[in-house]
Write a protein that binds this DNA or RNA. Structure first.
Lengths: 164, 164
DNA sequence: GACGATTAGATTGTGCGCAATTCAATTGCC
DNA sequence: GGCAATTGAATTGCGCACAATCTAATCGTC
């Protein structure tokens, strides 16, 4: 019986892993003519979101981007350099705190938003889910991610009863 | 309103992506003293499963492993070489079909199964889910993965109504 | 104001994942 | 039997992800 539970658990972890890769595959196709990968698209989404006006909305530091996307500088630094090389973002040192690098959109980066507009609908259709399932799935996964991140902060063996 | 839905869709995709990485992080810690990464652990799970007896259970080809794990040779070849270098698996050409490589467990690889036994329970605890939630989540994700893989086989723009 | 501690990014190294290509073995067709 | 097409692995190239380390800037404390 315990064996049953454990097998089930393995399957759900694998299911998350496999679903993530399958999503990545569909995004890869849908983003190809935008010249973006899925992680790059995520960065662009955050940037688009934070300048709802058109003008020169406020830029975000690498740290803020990392907090929003749960990524560290080891991932973001090279990714942002690629977006910069593609002409989509600018990276400038913050004059108020020279440790920070502020990431902002170029006109081309801002303009890309419109072309990316149809992507979510295609992905949504490809999942075969309805809206309430999406809502529920998001809620469950967000809770799980929080629990997993919390578990990582604990010693290491805190899976059950506290030490007596 | 539609915009709202699209945002939700972006969120659920990100939730899958983030949950997958969070899971990977917890597995990383739990598998550290086994010397395995999560993908390596998945390969070992498949091998352990396919030789339930103790003896010299049947080996699996790289192709069969790839089908079970949804991975291609570009990922599996170097991964299996690392497992081989670690002394956990053997790789031998199939004498019946010299194109195939059969992957089998070494005694050390088989022995590792026991030490890995406690891992699933720790992961399960870390997710904070109960058994029925796990079951439901697995079912939804498996369905989504199938739908996404199916969508990849279609032309590219088949998001809605078929052409009239 | 000087100095140790902290913080933000960048860099390096390792491994996963996939597309595209290559090569050898096998199969199919004539 | 001979040759083209197919199949199974391996390799190459690129990008993501994370740990560990490094550097420079800033902050705290005295």
């Amino acid at each position: 019986m315990e064996d049953q539970l454990l097998r089930l658990d393995n399957q759900v972890c694998f299911a998350v892993h496999a679903a993530s890769r399958a999503l990545d595959g569909v995004y890869r196709r849908e983003l190809r003519d935008l010249g973006l990968t899925y992680p790059q698209y995520l960065v662009m989404l955050v940037l688009w979101e934070h300048r709802p006006g058109g003008a020169d909305g406020r830029a975000l530091s690498v740290k803020e981007l990392g907090e929003a996307l749960r990524l560290d500088s080891g991932t973001l630094s090279p990714l942002l350099k690629r977006l910069e090389a593609a002409g989509l973002v600018r990276r400038d040192r913050d004059r108020r705190d020279e440790r920070s690098v502020l990431v902002g959109l170029t006109p081309q980066g801002a303009a890309l938003r419109e072309r990316a507009g149809r992507v979510p609908a295609r992905i949504f259709a490809a999942t075969g889910l309805d809206e309430s399932e999406v809502r529920h799935l998001r809620q469950v996964l967000t809770r799980v991610t929080g629990a997993l991140d919390g578990a990582l902060l604990e010693p290491a063996a805190a899976t059950g009863v506290p030490a007596r």
